[in-house]
Design a protein around this nucleic acid. Sequence first.
DNA 1: GAATTAAACTGGTTTACACCAGATTTATTT
DNA 2: AAATAAATCTGGTGTAAACCAGTTTAATTC
Lengths: 256, 256
Amino acid sequence: MTAKKPLDRPDWWMDLPDAVDSRHYLGVRDSIAAHIHNGNLAEGACLPSERQLQTGTGAARGTIRAALFQLEAEGLIYRKERSGWYVSPPPIVYDPTRWEGFMSYVAAQGRTPKTELLDARTIAATAELAVVFGVDMGAPLYEIRRRRYIDDRAVLVETIHVDPRLTPSLLEHDLSQSLTQVLRSHYSIAVVRNRIEMAPCALTQDEAVALRLKSGLPGLLVKRISYDAQGRVVEYDLEYWRHDALKISVDIRVGN
Amino acid sequence: MTAKKPLDRPDWWMDLPDAVDSRHYLGVRDSIAAHIHNGNLAEGACLPSERQLQTGTGAARGTIRAALFQLEAEGLIYRKERSGWYVSPPPIVYDPTRWEGFMSYVAAQGRTPKTELLDARTIAATAELAVVFGVDMGAPLYEIRRRRYIDDRAVLVETIHVDPRLTPSLLEHDLSQSLTQVLRSHYSIAVVRNRIEMAPCALTQDEAVALRLKSGLPGLLVKRISYDAQGRVVEYDLEYWRHDALKISVDIRVGN
DNA sequence: GAATTAAACTGGTTTACACCAGATTTATTT
DNA sequence: AAATAAATCTGGTGTAAACCAGTTTAATTC
């Protein structure tokens, strides 16, 4: 563990000049933000505890927490339950048009990707899935749940659905690797088209638990449908990201 | 005003069966969410006041507020300062690859777009802007600030920078219309390429005030650089969206 | 030294007030 | 009827205390 817990209020801590805004919690926010930008609080570092943060300011804990929530919404800090608040690492840049898969683009940005297989099984198609894949309700589908990390921090959980007709015995392969790779090398399936949707959301129980986050925290839902050259649905992927882990970047030519 | 203030606790209000989770505020959250999905609380409708919401539950106001913040983060409700909490309208779908401009794609989705010019003037290029436009620091640039609405709700504020060399006397035109239109019809400039970045952010003082929001609320920052056929920067646009107003959707062919 | 246990610490949640300033409504005055 | 003033309602912010349940650390035991 690189980040140590603060046993005492750090000596370098002092109240930096705060904003004009009279709202106390914003002052506290600015103070902490300044320490982060100053480098006093490095990436991944642990903040002083809420009760320690109170001492200098004379603020109630609720006020301190309001400031911390604020910073969390901004993506500057995050929390580990009942452990402490930590400085967020910079977000990964995600370009939906350059399709290379998670493992590739994370590594390309000098970060360390990791994929963990949570579950893999065959299920019966629900109404929604049936529509997506163009199969009958109840038809067999593979369902894969994975958790993915950047520099050992869990950043997303995903549920992937795949049509067994295209990829028989898929579950027997190593699914903690890039699925794109497996599809290409074992089934000669290449993704030709992607349909991606993104929307801010709240993390529900399941996702939150998997990400070791508090349920209800804001996240980003990325829905992705991949098609092959024949227009068949290769992969239907639901990714729940922690909101501070990614940044979207698109570079596109405007047609006609 | 379509939405009336609740003078008394609505008769239809009752505590719906809530989640298993013991956390009280999540129960309150679910209860309100259920009322929204039931249709008891229609789009744009005003929720009972925080203090009214207390009565049935026996919860403290802080608990009620925790539930409301939760719903706000999820995009289900939003607030008008010191006026009340309202049910959010559905988000607009934004496809960065289909570039048609705000006015077009909002209208195409059956909603009513509106643009309001806040400010238009000539400024001296800052260091950052100089890099973007490839001009010297201090060089003249047009700066346009606008506020845009969907169905009369302010959803974004933007700051646009344009190079006067490409568009002399731009400020004399009607800037509350589609800028794309103006560039095309008066200057024969067509956007050929767009570079778009999106990231969750916190709304700062300026943006928040312009959107009549509380500063610090989560938003979505959309950065857009438009290029013409010669690769010149036509437009540099910074858009601050309220986080619940849009959903991103991309449909792309995987090249190479 | 390793495993276990106990104590200390951390955030998580909730209660109960209190006061403020802007928004809204009502009553009053012009 | 319209303009104005006052009362009321609403969210915004802040304080002070508690208690809980995981995490972490320190002490103890094997």
